[in-house]
């Protein structure tokens, strides 16, 4: 019996270690990252403004904003005790943003995966690995991921 528990704990610990060895953005989900917003498409609303707007909401901390040619992705984390109402918060935020910035199309997500990918994209852009076109393509892939249903 003790061995079983030991094995389970060992697997969990091994899992954590694997994650820590990951070079890019390994801690994005554990701590508050507050990544700089990305503005791929330079005209129109500034991403800083959108980010401030989102961070003003009580239930939300840690926001990543990426503005592409067609869509603006807003990824954020919800305070844990508010996660019960996560879907409602998402809907409200989308409505609010679309009312405020009518010319933009928003993709809003509280999914950890979307947040993680947003941070990874930010890091790749900072490292100078991609031009605007490639970044926009990556953004589209992230949005496609978001639309996938279980």
């Amino acid at each position: 019996m003790k061995t079983v528990i030991f094995v389970i704990v060992a697997i969990i610990l091994a899992g954590c270690n694997l994650q820590e060895e990951r070079p890019d953005s390994p801690l994005a989900l554990i701590k508050t990252t507050n990544p700089e917003p990305i503005q791929i498409e330079k005209n129109g609303t500034s991403v800083e403004k959108i980010r401030k707007e989102v961070e003003g909401i009580d239930e939300i901390y840690d926001t990543a904003v990426i503005k592409g040619d067609h869509n603006t992705l807003v990824a954020y984390k919800v305070r844990h005790l508010d996660r019960f109402r996560m879907k409602k918060i998402e809907k409200n935020l989308k409505e609010r943003l679309e009312k405020q910035y009518e010319q933009e199309t928003f993709v809003v997500s509280s999914d950890y995966k979307i947040f993680l990918e947003a941070v990874r994209l930010r890091e790749d852009i900072d490292a100078g690995k991609m031009n605007d076109e490639e970044a926009d393509k990556r953004l589209h892939e992230i949005i496609k991921l978001k639309e996938e249903r279980a």
Partner: peptide, 27 residues
């Protein structure tokens, strides 16, 4: 609780290393 915690670790494993979101990592 431990089994579910292990499940959570596996979920994050799929989120980190594969293209699964919180929504799709369940399967």
């Amino acid at each position: 609780g431990l089994i579910c915690t292990l499940g959570q670790a596996i979920t994050y494993f799929f989120i980190y290393f594969f293209n699964f979101t919180e929504q799709t990592a369940g399967n």
